[in-house]
Amino acid sequence: MMAYFLVSHGSPDPAPQQSMALICQQLAGLGIVGWGTLEGASLPEQIRRFSQQAQSQGAEGIVILPLFLLPGNHVVVDLPPAIARAKSALPIELLPFLGGQPLFQAWLQQAIARESAHILLGHGSRRPEVLPWFERLCQTCGVHPALLTQAGSLDHAIEVRMAQGYTSSKVYGYFLFGGKTVNQVHRQVATLQVRYPHHSLSFVPAIQPTPSFINVLQGILQAVPLVEPVA
């Protein structure tokens, strides 16, 4: 039997915490499922406690899925050493981050098409390789890219659509479960609507733990082969 541990960014907002708890509840059919956060409490300690619990219930290994959407510093710099420091009682396999998973990207493409969205708005990163990665993702999904860390990025995407003759744009928030960042984007979109009064703006605020999204997580976890110890 395998145990599964999901890692999110972490937020004091109760909504993302409730979403993570719901996801774990819905994935319980896979076996032992838990979650932790990179921000806040020590992630190595969270993993150590989970591994002890999983071992006591007969688990043979732990699969960790990072619920991050971009290959930024959290994924590349922060997460691997944090997991390496975890004194786990069980072997661990760290999966690629969620945003890079083909199953998730296929789901995202369908979700964007279902919403008839035109712009994909992500958080962004200080890592220069994130921008071309995100632009390729947007090209695959058939939308314009915009990142919060790039000043004027969303304005530019809207202006491109206006120059193409469109009178409205729907922005799809490339965020998980809401929180402070999404609240800030709501205010930004409202400000842009005042700036562009003849161009109607709407906003799909964040990816939510819908049954179809949870099915994607289940598919990713079920596809994992036998766990081998981390070197």
Rank of each mutant, 00 (worst) to 15 (best):
R195F: 02
V130R: 13
A206M: 00
S116W: 01
G36L: 03
P225W: 12
F203Q: 14
T167D: 05
M1L: 06
G29Y: 08
A89Y: 03
E60Q: 14
G40K: 05
Y4P: 08
H118Q: 15
P102E: 11
S56A: 14
R195P: 02
A163L: 07
A231C: 11
A41L: 11
I83N: 00
M1K: 10
A223G: 04
V182L: 08
E45W: 04
S8A: 15
P197V: 05
S11V: 06
C138K: 03
F213A: 07
S200A: 15
A84I: 09
V130N: 07
Q46L: 08
Q53I: 14
Q18W: 07
Q110E: 15
A86Y: 03
V185I: 15
A59W: 00
T140Y: 14
P96W: 00
S200M: 09
K87T: 00
T149M: 14
A82G: 02
S88F: 01
L226E: 15
A15I: 11
G36A: 01
A82I: 00
Y196R: 02
V189L: 09
Q18F: 10
I214W: 08
V185D: 08
S202L: 10
L38S: 11
L27V: 04
G152H: 09
P229M: 04
K170S: 15
A146K: 01
G61R: 03
V204Q: 10
I23G: 12
L176Y: 07
V77E: 15
L147W: 05
P81D: 03
Q17T: 09
S153I: 10
H74R: 04
V130W: 05
R187A: 14
F175Y: 14
L147Y: 06
G165L: 04
G36E: 02
M1G: 14
L120K: 07
R195Y: 01
L192P: 07
H156D: 13
R126E: 15
M2I: 09
L148E: 07
P14T: 13
S125D: 00
Q150M: 11
G179H: 11
V227G: 04
A231H: 07
R161N: 06
Q109G: 05
G99T: 00
C141D: 10
G36K: 06
E45V: 10
L103K: 13
V130D: 12
V160N: 05
D78S: 05
P145E: 03
L201I: 01
Q188A: 13
V7W: 03
R161D: 10
H9K: 04
L94F: 05
A190Q: 13
Q164S: 12
P145I: 02
P16K: 00
L67N: 01
P96G: 10
A41K: 13
M20L: 15
L90H: 05
